[in-house]
Design a protein around this nucleic acid. Sequence first.
DNA 1: CACCATTATGAGCAATCATTCAGTTCTTGC
DNA 2: GCAAGAACTGAATGATTGCTCATAATGGTG
Lengths: 204, 204
Amino acid sequence: MSRDPRLHPRKQPRQVRAELTRRRILEAAAQVFTEYGYAAGTTNRIAEYAGVSIGSLYQYYPNKDAILLELMLAHLDSGEEEATRRQTGELPGTAEGLMRLFVQAAIANHLEDPRLLRVMVEQAPRSPELLQRVYQFKNERNAHTRDLLRRYREVRVSDLETAARIINATIELVVHQVVAEHEPIDLQRLEDELVAMFTRYLTA
Amino acid sequence: MSRDPRLHPRKQPRQVRAELTRRRILEAAAQVFTEYGYAAGTTNRIAEYAGVSIGSLYQYYPNKDAILLELMLAHLDSGEEEATRRQTGELPGTAEGLMRLFVQAAIANHLEDPRLLRVMVEQAPRSPELLQRVYQFKNERNAHTRDLLRRYREVRVSDLETAARIINATIELVVHQVVAEHEPIDLQRLEDELVAMFTRYLTA
DNA sequence: CACCATTATGAGCAATCATTCAGTTCTTGC
DNA sequence: GCAAGAACTGAATGATTGCTCATAATGGTG
């Protein structure tokens, strides 16, 4: 893994207050990016929100991109964690139950902070390192989905790999759009229809 | 319709060369935004690409946003035109045929210039006027899709409205993602699987 | 040709921002 | 309690960029 030195912290905190400062900066960045977007979310504003001088910010982050990168990595990590946590539970008895689990998880995830998520998605292409991680994450999720689908006898599609990719992409994107936009859609109905579509697709 | 004066051309061209200049600027803008993205696609760079002075650019566009807005409106218009053109032809005999038509159109459309499209999608939320138009466009498309679906007896979903929305959103987003990203996916397979999914959903 | 509206030019202004660094304050270990 | 390093400060810098405006060139018209 090639780490771009222009994207990683310059200094490892050694005192407690330094760790606190780091965290305050990161939380402020999340707030500011959410409120103003990436371009208008200036580093000075982040420092101000964090109640910290701009100089302190630059002691821990070599530049603005590095701050967003850390936010993104944190988001990915929490998503991954969530996924493995769900994996340990009982599997639903039907493919429909499985699909419902998927859709519900996506809706919940995107309801969290759609605006910050949007900033992240928009800026992601700027960091090859991040793209690499996102790509890997999606691949693993697709593989995992495929393995889950394989356990259900009712699932009849021949190419589970492609089915898994389409299902995951559809869930992610449709839910993201519908939740992020201000379209007044009934989330319950969205959930039901997506589940129906996937189930019929898989078990036709 | 409220037209924001800060987004519309200051001057109507009266001579041929002025019209030419306008067009050159717009084409250059498409190129520059495609190559550099919106933020790094500076107005000076656009003027340079157009072989025109920066002053000329500002005679026709009051600011940078207005340029992108015009590009977006042009894209929407061409899409609408394409849609009505397709409407005049013969309807396919089966719902599957209809879905294939939809998916093929989306793939073709997105294959055109994914990077410029991406810039547009990212920047769209900045213009309420544009959002309004996009929203209207989607509503009309959904209504149209719903009407088409109604003509097929094999279609058995109860809520055609929601079905139309989900189908259109899925097509647009999945195709956009898969085409725009560099994922090596077989477009033919993508088409087939999407068609299969929609058909089974509709006719289950 | 002569006149004027239209169009084109591009140096430079003003504002914004990411980032630096010299100096100050705080913590820790002895 | 005192050095020495760690952490923090914020005015200043330098670079970028959207945009203006005074001036020049061009085209149409009588």
